[in-house]
């Protein structure tokens, strides 16, 4: 019987419950056995659990215990699935990457915490990676299909990334007919724009499509909501924020720059008051600048 473990590290705490509910996954689980999942009453010392076939891991490493558990379960598991954006890039919980333990807890509790928050992938090698906040139903089904192949033994030869890495804009229903000509007319608050159905960037709304992997079938876009980057960087993107700054530099007000000159451009750029929030909502621990900031604190 296939033995499954559910390991929930620091996060919003819901990813694995959702996964469990998925009919395809649920069927697999029913044919197997869940040997560890404290949130649903299945507790045990990892040292005594024995071999685990598949461990699903969600969340980030913030506490020292997170790290201990993570390492233990990697050791005893044949296949490790990093499930959800938190586990791969830090996710929304990763927004706390620059907070020192003392900013989060007091007294003896400070000692429980790691100096920063990091995704699971910074510490261990998972076999299967499933981004999404949450991963979509389609991706869950893909996961079930992939797991079936390895249920009776073996493991993927190399890491399996369960979403295609291509950039979201590529097949976007709002893609401009001539992307070379596309121009960002300014920087606007999405709440202030009466959406005309064109590419968000052409309407002055920051959409992370140019730097984000498509693993959602344009879910947000179809809901008339700009991409927030939850699937992580597209193939070839080094750093979602820095790459995005590169794109903005190319297309913001490009037909008017000679008229606006530097002061005019600066005025428009000042409307983006929280670039960190816009660019790194889901990937702050992976930002190159986070690395730099942490190094200055003596953490890296």
């Amino acid at each position: 019987m296939t033995r499954y473990a559910f390991l929930e590290l620091t996060s919003c705490g819901d990813c694995l419950s959702e996964l469990y509910m998925n009919p395809e996954i649920n069927k697999l689980l029913e044919e197997g056995e869940i040997v560890y999942w404290p949130a649903y009453g299945i507790v045990g010392d990892p040292e005594e659990i024995g071999e685990v076939d598949v461990t699903f891991i969600a969340g980030t490493v913030r506490t020292r215990r997170d790290l201990e558990e993570l390492e233990k379960f990697r050791r005893i598991s044949r296949i490790v699935v990093a499930y959800g954006t938190c586990s791969i890039y830090g996710g929304l919980n990763g927004l706390t990457a620059l907070l020192e333990p003392r900013a989060i807890a007091d007294g003896e509790y400070v000692k429980l915490l790691m100096p920063t928050v990091k995704p699971v992938t910074d510490y261990i090698e998972p076999d299967i990676l499933v981004p999404g906040c949450p991963p979509t139903r389609e991706v869950m089904a893909r996961l079930a299909k992939t797991l079936k192949k390895y249920i009776s033994g073996g493991k993927p030869e190399k890491k399996i990334f369960l979403i295609p890495g291509e950039v979201l804009c590529k097949h976007c229903p709002r893609r401009p007919s001539n992307p070379e000509k596309a121009e960002m007319p300014g920087i606007r608050d999405p709440n202030e724009v009466v959406d005309d159905g064109r590419c968000f960037i052409e309407q002055g709304i920051l959409c992370l499509g140019p730097v984000t992997a498509n693993g959602c079938n344009h879910l947000c876009i179809r809901f008339n909501h700009p991409c927030m980057g939850c699937m992580g960087p597209a193939r070839g993107v080094v750093d979602q924020g820095l790459n995005m700054i590169g794109s903005i530099g190319s297309i913001l007000l490009k037909s008017r720059e000679v008229k606006l000159l530097f002061p005019g451009l600066a005025k428009e750029l000042d409307k983006l008051r929280d670039p960190m929030g816009y660019f790194y909502r889901y990937t702050l621990p992976k930002a190159m600048l986070t690395k730099l900031a942490l190094r200055r604190r003596g953490v890296e």
Partner: peptide
């Protein structure tokens, strides 16, 4: 102009990282 926009923005971003 490209460089100006990029580095003006990068500076703002760096500030948020301390």
């Amino acid at each position: 102009f490209k460089a100006f926009k990029r580095f003006y923005l990068l500076k703002k971003l760096m500030k948020q990282f301390g």
